[in-house]
Design a protein around this nucleic acid. Structure first.
Lengths: 240, 240
DNA sequence: GGGACGGTTCGGCGCTCACCGAAGTGTCCG
DNA sequence: CGGACACTTCGGTGAGCGCCGAACCGTCCC
Protein backbone atom coordinates (compact mmCIF):
# COMPACT_ATOMS: atom_id res chain seq x y z
CA UNK A 1 0.00 0.00 0.00
CA UNK A 2 2.79 2.31 0.90
CA UNK A 3 4.03 2.71 -2.66
CA UNK A 4 7.66 2.81 -1.72
CA UNK A 5 8.39 3.30 -5.38
CA UNK A 6 11.20 5.44 -6.63
CA UNK A 7 10.90 7.35 -9.90
CA UNK A 8 10.35 4.43 -12.34
CA UNK A 9 8.88 5.78 -15.56
CA UNK A 10 5.11 6.19 -15.25
CA UNK A 11 4.71 4.58 -18.66
CA UNK A 12 6.19 1.36 -17.33
CA UNK A 13 2.93 0.24 -15.76
CA UNK A 14 0.94 0.87 -18.90
CA UNK A 15 3.55 -0.85 -21.04
CA UNK A 16 3.57 -3.89 -18.78
CA UNK A 17 -0.22 -4.02 -18.78
CA UNK A 18 -0.32 -3.88 -22.57
CA UNK A 19 2.32 -6.56 -22.94
CA UNK A 20 0.56 -8.81 -20.43
CA UNK A 21 -2.34 -9.05 -22.80
CA UNK A 22 -0.17 -10.86 -25.33
CA UNK A 23 1.93 -12.64 -22.74
CA UNK A 24 -0.34 -15.64 -22.51
CA UNK A 25 -0.15 -18.35 -25.13
CA UNK A 26 -3.90 -18.68 -25.48
CA UNK A 27 -4.45 -14.97 -25.88
CA UNK A 28 -1.53 -14.81 -28.29
CA UNK A 29 -3.15 -17.54 -30.36
CA UNK A 30 -6.36 -15.52 -30.43
CA UNK A 31 -4.57 -12.42 -31.64
CA UNK A 32 -2.79 -14.35 -34.36
CA UNK A 33 -5.98 -16.00 -35.52
CA UNK A 34 -7.79 -12.68 -35.59
CA UNK A 35 -5.05 -11.18 -37.74
CA UNK A 36 -7.02 -12.46 -40.70
CA UNK A 37 -9.20 -9.40 -40.17
CA UNK A 38 -12.38 -11.37 -39.83
CA UNK A 39 -14.65 -11.56 -36.79
CA UNK A 40 -14.61 -14.82 -34.87
CA UNK A 41 -17.11 -16.09 -32.36
CA UNK A 42 -15.94 -16.94 -28.87
CA UNK A 43 -16.69 -20.60 -29.50
CA UNK A 44 -14.61 -20.76 -32.65
CA UNK A 45 -11.66 -19.28 -30.81
CA UNK A 46 -12.10 -21.66 -27.88
CA UNK A 47 -12.00 -24.65 -30.20
CA UNK A 48 -9.10 -23.17 -32.14
CA UNK A 49 -7.11 -22.71 -28.95
CA UNK A 50 -8.14 -25.97 -27.32
CA UNK A 51 -9.40 -24.48 -24.07
CA UNK A 52 -12.78 -24.49 -22.33
CA UNK A 53 -15.33 -21.91 -23.40
CA UNK A 54 -15.30 -20.45 -19.91
CA UNK A 55 -11.56 -19.95 -20.06
CA UNK A 56 -11.72 -18.22 -23.37
CA UNK A 57 -14.51 -15.99 -22.22
CA UNK A 58 -12.24 -14.59 -19.55
CA UNK A 59 -9.47 -14.05 -22.07
CA UNK A 60 -11.79 -12.14 -24.34
CA UNK A 61 -12.82 -10.00 -21.41
CA UNK A 62 -9.23 -8.96 -20.93
CA UNK A 63 -8.46 -8.40 -24.58
CA UNK A 64 -11.57 -6.32 -25.10
CA UNK A 65 -11.05 -4.48 -21.84
CA UNK A 66 -7.49 -3.72 -22.88
CA UNK A 67 -8.68 -2.23 -26.15
CA UNK A 68 -7.04 -4.79 -28.39
CA UNK A 69 -10.29 -6.34 -29.55
CA UNK A 70 -13.67 -4.92 -30.44
CA UNK A 71 -16.76 -6.97 -29.83
CA UNK A 72 -20.15 -7.14 -31.40
CA UNK A 73 -22.94 -9.18 -29.93
CA UNK A 74 -25.41 -10.79 -32.25
CA UNK A 75 -28.07 -12.90 -30.64
CA UNK A 76 -26.36 -15.55 -28.63
CA UNK A 77 -23.07 -15.02 -30.41
CA UNK A 78 -20.20 -12.82 -29.36
CA UNK A 79 -18.13 -11.76 -32.31
CA UNK A 80 -14.70 -10.28 -31.72
CA UNK A 81 -12.18 -8.77 -34.09
CA UNK A 82 -8.99 -6.76 -33.92
CA UNK A 83 -9.97 -3.33 -32.66
CA UNK A 84 -8.26 -1.28 -35.35
CA UNK A 85 -5.35 -1.09 -37.75
CA UNK A 86 -2.99 0.14 -35.05
CA UNK A 87 -3.51 -2.97 -33.01
CA UNK A 88 -3.12 -5.16 -36.08
CA UNK A 89 0.17 -3.46 -36.83
CA UNK A 90 1.36 -4.00 -33.29
CA UNK A 91 0.66 -7.71 -33.44
CA UNK A 92 2.29 -7.90 -36.85
CA UNK A 93 5.37 -6.15 -35.53
CA UNK A 94 5.65 -8.50 -32.60
CA UNK A 95 5.15 -11.48 -34.87
CA UNK A 96 7.77 -10.24 -37.30
CA UNK A 97 10.21 -10.04 -34.44
CA UNK A 98 9.93 -13.72 -33.67
CA UNK A 99 9.61 -14.93 -37.24
CA UNK A 100 13.33 -15.46 -37.85
CA UNK A 101 13.43 -18.02 -35.04
CA UNK A 102 10.19 -19.86 -35.62
CA UNK A 103 11.30 -22.29 -38.27
CA UNK A 104 8.63 -23.71 -40.50
CA UNK A 105 6.91 -26.42 -38.51
CA UNK A 106 6.90 -29.87 -40.06
CA UNK A 107 3.72 -29.97 -42.04
CA UNK A 108 1.53 -32.97 -42.55
CA UNK A 109 0.38 -33.72 -46.04
CA UNK A 110 -3.17 -32.95 -45.10
CA UNK A 111 -2.36 -29.36 -44.29
CA UNK A 112 -0.13 -28.65 -47.19
CA UNK A 113 -3.04 -27.95 -49.53
CA UNK A 114 -4.45 -25.20 -47.39
CA UNK A 115 -0.96 -24.00 -46.57
CA UNK A 116 0.06 -23.61 -50.15
CA UNK A 117 -3.14 -21.72 -50.90
CA UNK A 118 -2.23 -19.41 -48.04
CA UNK A 119 1.29 -19.03 -49.36
CA UNK A 120 -0.06 -18.07 -52.80
CA UNK A 121 -2.25 -15.31 -51.53
CA UNK A 122 -4.01 -14.29 -48.38
CA UNK A 123 -5.17 -11.29 -46.44
CA UNK A 124 -3.15 -9.98 -43.55
CA UNK A 125 -5.69 -8.07 -41.48
CA UNK A 126 -6.90 -5.73 -44.23
CA UNK A 127 -4.26 -5.96 -46.97
CA UNK A 128 -2.76 -8.56 -49.27
CA UNK A 129 0.06 -10.88 -48.27
CA UNK A 130 1.62 -14.07 -49.52
CA UNK A 131 3.12 -14.29 -52.99
CA UNK A 132 0.25 -12.19 -54.32
CA UNK A 133 0.99 -9.39 -51.87
CA UNK A 134 4.68 -9.51 -52.73
CA UNK A 135 4.00 -9.50 -56.44
CA UNK A 136 1.79 -6.45 -56.22
CA UNK A 137 4.25 -4.63 -54.00
CA UNK A 138 7.18 -5.38 -56.26
CA UNK A 139 5.24 -4.40 -59.37
CA UNK A 140 4.35 -1.06 -57.81
CA UNK A 141 7.98 -0.52 -56.95
CA UNK A 142 9.26 -1.51 -60.40
CA UNK A 143 6.92 1.03 -61.96
CA UNK A 144 8.11 3.85 -59.74
CA UNK A 145 4.87 4.08 -57.84
CA UNK A 146 6.25 2.94 -54.53
CA UNK A 147 9.58 3.53 -52.80
CA UNK A 148 10.94 0.56 -50.90
CA UNK A 149 14.68 1.05 -50.71
CA UNK A 150 14.80 4.32 -48.86
CA UNK A 151 11.84 3.72 -46.59
CA UNK A 152 8.31 2.94 -47.58
CA UNK A 153 6.15 5.54 -49.29
CA UNK A 154 4.03 6.15 -52.35
CA UNK A 155 5.55 8.45 -54.93
CA UNK A 156 3.56 11.20 -56.59
CA UNK A 157 3.12 8.89 -59.55
CA UNK A 158 1.82 6.31 -57.14
CA UNK A 159 -0.78 8.71 -55.82
CA UNK A 160 -1.90 9.40 -59.39
CA UNK A 161 -2.05 5.69 -60.13
CA UNK A 162 -4.42 5.09 -57.25
CA UNK A 163 -6.46 8.07 -58.33
CA UNK A 164 -6.73 6.80 -61.89
CA UNK A 165 -7.83 3.44 -60.56
CA UNK A 166 -10.68 5.18 -58.81
CA UNK A 167 -9.53 4.08 -55.39
CA UNK A 168 -10.20 6.46 -52.55
CA UNK A 169 -7.28 6.46 -50.15
CA UNK A 170 -9.33 7.91 -47.32
CA UNK A 171 -9.35 11.38 -45.87
CA UNK A 172 -5.76 11.20 -44.60
CA UNK A 173 -6.69 10.24 -41.09
CA UNK A 174 -4.11 9.28 -38.55
CA UNK A 175 -3.25 6.17 -40.45
CA UNK A 176 -0.16 6.22 -42.69
CA UNK A 177 -0.88 5.78 -46.37
CA UNK A 178 1.81 3.22 -46.97
CA UNK A 179 3.81 1.15 -44.60
CA UNK A 180 5.71 -2.11 -44.77
CA UNK A 181 4.40 -5.32 -43.29
CA UNK A 182 6.82 -8.18 -43.08
CA UNK A 183 5.45 -11.25 -44.75
CA UNK A 184 5.47 -14.37 -42.67
CA UNK A 185 5.95 -16.92 -45.43
CA UNK A 186 7.93 -14.80 -47.86
CA UNK A 187 10.09 -12.96 -45.32
CA UNK A 188 9.80 -9.85 -47.40
CA UNK A 189 7.95 -6.58 -46.88
CA UNK A 190 4.69 -5.95 -48.64
CA UNK A 191 2.38 -2.98 -48.88
CA UNK A 192 0.20 -2.28 -45.84
CA UNK A 193 -1.34 0.87 -44.48
CA UNK A 194 -4.30 2.76 -45.89
CA UNK A 195 -3.17 2.21 -49.48
CA UNK A 196 -2.66 -1.50 -48.95
CA UNK A 197 -6.09 -1.81 -47.41
CA UNK A 198 -7.76 0.19 -50.15
CA UNK A 199 -6.07 -1.83 -52.86
CA UNK A 200 -7.08 -5.12 -51.28
CA UNK A 201 -10.65 -3.92 -50.93
CA UNK A 202 -10.65 -2.81 -54.56
CA UNK A 203 -9.43 -6.17 -55.82
CA UNK A 204 -12.15 -7.94 -53.88
CA UNK A 205 -14.84 -5.45 -54.89
CA UNK A 206 -13.96 -5.78 -58.55
CA UNK A 207 -14.02 -9.54 -58.35
CA UNK A 208 -10.36 -9.71 -59.25
CA UNK A 209 -9.77 -11.77 -56.13
CA UNK A 210 -12.10 -13.97 -54.15
CA UNK A 211 -11.76 -15.49 -50.73
CA UNK A 212 -11.33 -19.24 -50.62
CA UNK A 213 -13.96 -20.63 -48.31
CA UNK A 214 -14.33 -18.66 -45.14
CA UNK A 215 -10.64 -18.34 -44.43
CA UNK A 216 -8.07 -15.71 -45.15
CA UNK A 217 -6.65 -17.36 -48.26
CA UNK A 218 -7.57 -15.61 -51.52
CA UNK A 219 -7.14 -16.50 -55.15
CA UNK A 220 -6.95 -14.44 -58.29
CA UNK A 221 -9.84 -14.83 -60.75
CA UNK A 222 -9.60 -14.86 -64.51
CA UNK A 223 -10.64 -11.24 -64.70
CA UNK A 224 -8.12 -10.54 -61.96
CA UNK A 225 -5.28 -12.07 -63.97
CA UNK A 226 -6.08 -9.82 -66.89
CA UNK A 227 -6.43 -6.75 -64.69
CA UNK A 228 -3.16 -7.36 -62.86
CA UNK A 229 -1.37 -7.88 -66.13
CA UNK A 230 -2.84 -4.72 -67.64
CA UNK A 231 -2.35 -2.50 -64.63
CA UNK A 232 0.94 -3.71 -63.24
CA UNK A 233 2.43 -6.12 -65.71
CA UNK A 234 2.14 -8.95 -63.23
CA UNK A 235 2.43 -12.45 -64.59
CA UNK A 236 -0.59 -13.64 -62.69
CA UNK A 237 -0.33 -17.16 -64.01
CA UNK A 238 2.65 -17.62 -61.72
CA UNK A 239 0.33 -17.09 -58.81
CA UNK A 240 -1.99 -19.92 -59.70
CA UNK B 1 2.69 -33.91 -20.60
CA UNK B 2 0.13 -35.28 -22.97
CA UNK B 3 -0.07 -32.07 -24.99
CA UNK B 4 -3.79 -32.33 -25.59
CA UNK B 5 -3.42 -29.20 -27.70
CA UNK B 6 -5.36 -28.61 -30.83
CA UNK B 7 -3.83 -26.72 -33.74
CA UNK B 8 -3.16 -23.35 -32.02
CA UNK B 9 -0.68 -21.43 -34.13
CA UNK B 10 2.89 -22.52 -33.35
CA UNK B 11 3.92 -18.89 -33.25
CA UNK B 12 1.64 -18.29 -30.28
CA UNK B 13 4.11 -19.68 -27.79
CA UNK B 14 6.95 -17.56 -29.10
CA UNK B 15 4.77 -14.47 -29.20
CA UNK B 16 3.64 -15.01 -25.62
CA UNK B 17 7.21 -15.58 -24.50
CA UNK B 18 8.35 -12.38 -26.16
CA UNK B 19 5.50 -10.37 -24.68
CA UNK B 20 6.12 -11.81 -21.21
CA UNK B 21 9.46 -10.10 -21.19
CA UNK B 22 7.80 -6.71 -21.26
CA UNK B 23 4.81 -7.78 -19.19
CA UNK B 24 6.41 -6.96 -15.89
CA UNK B 25 6.48 -3.40 -14.66
CA UNK B 26 10.08 -3.56 -13.51
CA UNK B 27 11.31 -5.04 -16.76
CA UNK B 28 9.23 -2.53 -18.68
CA UNK B 29 10.87 0.27 -16.73
CA UNK B 30 14.27 -1.15 -17.66
CA UNK B 31 13.40 -1.23 -21.33
CA UNK B 32 12.11 2.33 -21.26
CA UNK B 33 15.19 3.57 -19.46
CA UNK B 34 17.47 1.79 -21.89
CA UNK B 35 15.69 3.42 -24.82
CA UNK B 36 18.15 6.25 -24.41
CA UNK B 37 20.57 4.01 -26.26
CA UNK B 38 23.20 4.10 -23.56
CA UNK B 39 24.49 1.16 -21.54
CA UNK B 40 23.42 1.00 -17.90
CA UNK B 41 24.90 -1.02 -15.11
CA UNK B 42 22.73 -3.46 -13.22
CA UNK B 43 23.03 -1.35 -10.09
CA UNK B 44 21.85 1.82 -11.82
CA UNK B 45 18.82 0.05 -13.11
CA UNK B 46 18.07 -1.48 -9.72
CA UNK B 47 18.09 1.93 -8.10
CA UNK B 48 16.09 3.42 -10.96
CA UNK B 49 13.43 0.76 -10.57
CA UNK B 50 13.45 0.67 -6.80
CA UNK B 51 14.02 -3.05 -6.40
CA UNK B 52 16.77 -5.10 -4.79
CA UNK B 53 19.87 -5.81 -6.79
CA UNK B 54 19.16 -9.51 -6.64
CA UNK B 55 15.72 -9.00 -8.12
CA UNK B 56 17.03 -6.93 -10.95
CA UNK B 57 19.75 -9.42 -11.68
CA UNK B 58 17.09 -12.02 -12.39
CA UNK B 59 15.22 -9.62 -14.64
CA UNK B 60 18.35 -8.92 -16.62
CA UNK B 61 18.89 -12.63 -17.01
CA UNK B 62 15.51 -12.94 -18.68
CA UNK B 63 15.85 -9.90 -20.87
CA UNK B 64 19.29 -10.93 -22.08
CA UNK B 65 18.21 -14.53 -22.49
CA UNK B 66 15.24 -13.38 -24.51
CA UNK B 67 17.48 -11.44 -26.85
CA UNK B 68 16.11 -8.02 -25.97
CA UNK B 69 19.25 -6.83 -24.25
CA UNK B 70 22.94 -7.28 -24.95
CA UNK B 71 25.37 -7.39 -22.10
CA UNK B 72 28.99 -6.54 -21.70
CA UNK B 73 30.90 -7.36 -18.57
CA UNK B 74 33.61 -5.03 -17.46
CA UNK B 75 35.33 -5.92 -14.24
CA UNK B 76 32.75 -6.14 -11.56
CA UNK B 77 30.20 -4.26 -13.63
CA UNK B 78 27.54 -5.67 -15.89
CA UNK B 79 26.57 -3.25 -18.58
CA UNK B 80 23.38 -3.85 -20.55
CA UNK B 81 21.89 -2.07 -23.50
CA UNK B 82 19.12 -2.60 -26.03
CA UNK B 83 20.29 -5.47 -28.23
CA UNK B 84 19.73 -3.80 -31.60
CA UNK B 85 17.65 -1.31 -33.54
CA UNK B 86 14.88 -3.83 -34.12
CA UNK B 87 14.32 -4.25 -30.41
CA UNK B 88 14.41 -0.51 -29.89
CA UNK B 89 11.78 -0.10 -32.56
CA UNK B 90 9.60 -2.72 -30.94
CA UNK B 91 9.69 -1.00 -27.59
CA UNK B 92 9.02 2.34 -29.26
CA UNK B 93 6.04 0.89 -31.08
CA UNK B 94 4.60 -0.53 -27.89
CA UNK B 95 5.18 2.75 -26.12
CA UNK B 96 3.57 4.72 -28.91
CA UNK B 97 0.51 2.55 -28.56
CA UNK B 98 -0.05 3.55 -24.96
CA UNK B 99 1.03 7.17 -25.30
CA UNK B 100 -2.42 8.55 -26.14
CA UNK B 101 -3.71 7.35 -22.78
CA UNK B 102 -0.79 8.15 -20.50
CA UNK B 103 -1.49 11.79 -19.80
CA UNK B 104 1.44 13.90 -18.74
CA UNK B 105 2.04 13.18 -15.08
CA UNK B 106 1.95 16.18 -12.75
CA UNK B 107 5.49 17.39 -12.64
CA UNK B 108 7.22 18.88 -9.66
CA UNK B 109 9.12 22.05 -10.20
CA UNK B 110 12.38 20.32 -9.52
CA UNK B 111 11.98 18.06 -12.52
CA UNK B 112 10.70 20.61 -14.94
CA UNK B 113 14.19 21.85 -15.75
CA UNK B 114 15.43 18.49 -16.89
CA UNK B 115 12.09 17.76 -18.52
CA UNK B 116 12.13 20.87 -20.64
CA UNK B 117 15.69 20.11 -21.74
CA UNK B 118 14.43 16.69 -22.79
CA UNK B 119 11.52 18.25 -24.63
CA UNK B 120 13.86 20.56 -26.53
CA UNK B 121 16.09 17.81 -27.80
CA UNK B 122 17.07 14.29 -26.88
CA UNK B 123 18.12 11.01 -28.36
CA UNK B 124 15.64 8.24 -28.83
CA UNK B 125 17.82 5.13 -28.94
CA UNK B 126 20.10 6.21 -31.79
CA UNK B 127 18.29 9.11 -33.46
CA UNK B 128 17.06 12.57 -32.57
CA UNK B 129 13.73 13.27 -30.90
CA UNK B 130 12.06 16.12 -29.08
CA UNK B 131 11.52 19.46 -30.76
CA UNK B 132 14.94 19.17 -32.35
CA UNK B 133 14.06 15.86 -33.96
CA UNK B 134 10.76 17.24 -35.21
CA UNK B 135 12.41 20.35 -36.59
CA UNK B 136 14.96 18.36 -38.55
CA UNK B 137 12.33 15.97 -39.87
CA UNK B 138 10.03 18.77 -40.96
CA UNK B 139 12.86 20.68 -42.58
CA UNK B 140 13.87 17.62 -44.57
CA UNK B 141 10.27 17.22 -45.68
CA UNK B 142 9.83 20.86 -46.61
CA UNK B 143 12.92 20.65 -48.83
CA UNK B 144 11.64 17.61 -50.67
CA UNK B 145 14.24 15.31 -49.19
CA UNK B 146 11.84 13.19 -47.19
CA UNK B 147 8.32 11.97 -47.87
CA UNK B 148 6.01 11.95 -44.89
CA UNK B 149 2.50 12.17 -46.24
CA UNK B 150 2.43 9.04 -48.33
CA UNK B 151 4.53 6.89 -46.07
CA UNK B 152 8.02 7.53 -44.84
CA UNK B 153 10.97 7.41 -47.22
CA UNK B 154 13.90 9.44 -48.47
CA UNK B 155 13.53 10.85 -51.95
CA UNK B 156 16.32 10.65 -54.49
CA UNK B 157 17.17 14.23 -53.59
CA UNK B 158 17.33 13.15 -50.00
CA UNK B 159 19.82 10.46 -50.83
CA UNK B 160 21.95 13.03 -52.61
CA UNK B 161 21.69 15.40 -49.67
CA UNK B 162 23.06 12.80 -47.29
CA UNK B 163 25.79 11.96 -49.78
CA UNK B 164 26.79 15.63 -50.11
CA UNK B 165 26.92 15.87 -46.34
CA UNK B 166 29.45 13.07 -46.33
CA UNK B 167 27.25 10.82 -44.26
CA UNK B 168 27.48 7.14 -44.95
CA UNK B 169 24.08 5.54 -44.73
CA UNK B 170 25.51 2.07 -44.24
CA UNK B 171 25.69 -0.80 -46.63
CA UNK B 172 21.97 -1.26 -46.93
CA UNK B 173 21.72 -4.00 -44.36
CA UNK B 174 18.44 -5.31 -43.14
CA UNK B 175 17.61 -2.05 -41.50
CA UNK B 176 15.28 0.35 -43.33
CA UNK B 177 16.88 3.64 -44.30
CA UNK B 178 14.05 5.80 -43.07
CA UNK B 179 11.17 5.07 -40.82
CA UNK B 180 8.88 7.04 -38.57
CA UNK B 181 9.19 7.04 -34.82
CA UNK B 182 6.38 8.63 -32.90
CA UNK B 183 7.61 11.28 -30.57
CA UNK B 184 6.52 10.95 -27.00
CA UNK B 185 6.37 14.61 -26.07
CA UNK B 186 5.52 16.04 -29.47
CA UNK B 187 3.09 13.33 -30.57
CA UNK B 188 4.43 13.62 -34.08
CA UNK B 189 6.57 11.33 -36.19
CA UNK B 190 10.26 12.03 -36.58
CA UNK B 191 13.01 10.46 -38.63
CA UNK B 192 14.36 7.15 -37.37
CA UNK B 193 15.99 4.22 -39.12
CA UNK B 194 19.49 4.09 -40.55
CA UNK B 195 19.29 7.65 -41.89
CA UNK B 196 18.04 9.01 -38.58
CA UNK B 197 20.83 7.26 -36.73
CA UNK B 198 23.49 8.41 -39.17
CA UNK B 199 22.28 11.98 -39.00
CA UNK B 200 22.28 11.99 -35.22
CA UNK B 201 25.77 10.55 -35.15
CA UNK B 202 26.93 13.16 -37.63
CA UNK B 203 25.56 16.05 -35.57
CA UNK B 204 27.32 14.74 -32.48
CA UNK B 205 30.55 14.00 -34.34
CA UNK B 206 30.66 17.47 -35.83
CA UNK B 207 30.05 19.05 -32.45
CA UNK B 208 26.79 20.54 -33.68
CA UNK B 209 25.05 18.89 -30.76
CA UNK B 210 26.36 17.81 -27.37
CA UNK B 211 24.85 15.62 -24.72
CA UNK B 212 23.78 17.34 -21.55
CA UNK B 213 25.42 15.54 -18.66
CA UNK B 214 25.24 11.80 -18.94
CA UNK B 215 21.59 11.63 -19.92
CA UNK B 216 19.79 11.50 -23.21
CA UNK B 217 19.04 15.18 -23.46
CA UNK B 218 21.07 17.05 -26.09
CA UNK B 219 21.48 20.70 -26.93
CA UNK B 220 22.49 22.48 -30.10
CA UNK B 221 25.83 24.32 -30.01
CA UNK B 222 26.60 27.63 -31.63
CA UNK B 223 28.25 25.92 -34.55
CA UNK B 224 25.24 23.63 -34.70
CA UNK B 225 22.86 26.56 -35.00
CA UNK B 226 24.76 27.91 -37.97
CA UNK B 227 25.01 24.51 -39.62
CA UNK B 228 21.32 23.71 -39.19
CA UNK B 229 20.40 27.08 -40.61
CA UNK B 230 22.72 26.67 -43.58
CA UNK B 231 21.83 23.11 -44.39
CA UNK B 232 18.13 23.01 -43.64
CA UNK B 233 16.99 26.53 -42.98
CA UNK B 234 16.11 25.68 -39.42
CA UNK B 235 15.63 28.55 -37.04
CA UNK B 236 17.81 26.98 -34.39
CA UNK B 237 17.32 29.82 -31.96
CA UNK B 238 13.80 28.54 -31.40
CA UNK B 239 15.30 25.38 -30.02
CA UNK B 240 17.25 27.12 -27.30
C1' DG C 1 -43.25 -24.62 -23.81
C1' DG C 2 -39.14 -27.34 -23.87
C1' DG C 3 -34.72 -28.58 -25.33
C1' DA C 4 -30.39 -27.50 -27.60
C1' DC C 5 -26.88 -24.23 -27.69
C1' DG C 6 -23.57 -20.15 -27.05
C1' DG C 7 -21.74 -17.59 -23.61
C1' DT C 8 -20.83 -16.06 -18.70
C1' DT C 9 -20.05 -16.41 -13.73
C1' DC C 10 -18.14 -18.63 -9.85
C1' DG C 11 -15.36 -21.48 -6.72
C1' DG C 12 -11.37 -23.92 -6.44
C1' DC C 13 -6.97 -25.93 -7.79
C1' DG C 14 -2.18 -25.70 -9.00
C1' DC C 15 1.48 -23.40 -11.02
C1' DT C 16 4.27 -19.51 -11.99
C1' DC C 17 6.64 -15.63 -10.78
C1' DA C 18 8.32 -11.24 -8.63
C1' DC C 19 10.23 -10.12 -4.56
C1' DC C 20 13.38 -10.15 -0.60
C1' DG C 21 17.42 -11.07 2.49
C1' DA C 22 21.33 -13.83 3.32
C1' DA C 23 25.16 -16.04 1.75
C1' DG C 24 28.54 -16.62 -1.95
C1' DT C 25 31.71 -15.22 -6.00
C1' DG C 26 34.64 -12.27 -8.31
C1' DT C 27 36.89 -7.58 -8.90
C1' DC C 28 39.04 -3.44 -7.55
C1' DC C 29 41.81 -0.74 -4.40
C1' DG C 30 44.21 0.75 -0.37
C1' DC D 1 46.30 -9.20 2.39
C1' DG D 2 41.82 -7.40 3.66
C1' DG D 3 37.91 -4.70 3.02
C1' DA D 4 34.63 -2.34 0.00
C1' DC D 5 31.87 -3.12 -3.78
C1' DA D 6 29.04 -5.08 -7.87
C1' DC D 7 26.70 -8.71 -8.87
C1' DT D 8 24.73 -13.57 -8.50
C1' DT D 9 22.67 -17.57 -6.38
C1' DC D 10 19.51 -19.62 -3.38
C1' DG D 11 15.71 -20.61 -0.24
C1' DG D 12 11.26 -18.96 1.00
C1' DT D 13 6.98 -16.36 0.72
C1' DG D 14 2.94 -14.40 -1.05
C1' DA D 15 0.21 -12.89 -4.80
C1' DG D 16 -1.57 -13.45 -9.24
C1' DC D 17 -3.24 -16.04 -12.94
C1' DG D 18 -4.73 -19.68 -16.23
C1' DC D 19 -7.37 -23.46 -16.17
C1' DC D 20 -11.43 -26.36 -15.37
C1' DG D 21 -16.29 -28.02 -14.40
C1' DA D 22 -20.68 -26.86 -12.64
C1' DA D 23 -24.32 -23.85 -12.39
C1' DC D 24 -26.57 -20.14 -14.60
C1' DC D 25 -28.51 -16.85 -18.19
C1' DG D 26 -30.19 -15.70 -22.97
C1' DT D 27 -31.23 -16.92 -27.53
C1' DC D 28 -32.80 -19.82 -31.13
C1' DC D 29 -35.70 -23.41 -32.93
C1' DC D 30 -38.74 -27.40 -33.03
Amino acid sequence: MLEGMTSKDPRAGALARLASLAADETRAACLLALLDGRAWTAGELARHCGVAASTLSEHLGKLVGGGLLAEERQGRHRYVRIADARVAQLVEDLTAHIAPDAAEPPRGLRQSGADSAMARGRTCYDHLAGRLGIAVTDALTARGLLLQDTGFALTDAGLDWFGALGVDLGGRGRRPLARACLDWTERRPHLAGAAGAALCRHLLDQGWCVRIGSGRAVKVTGAGERALTDLLGIDAAALR
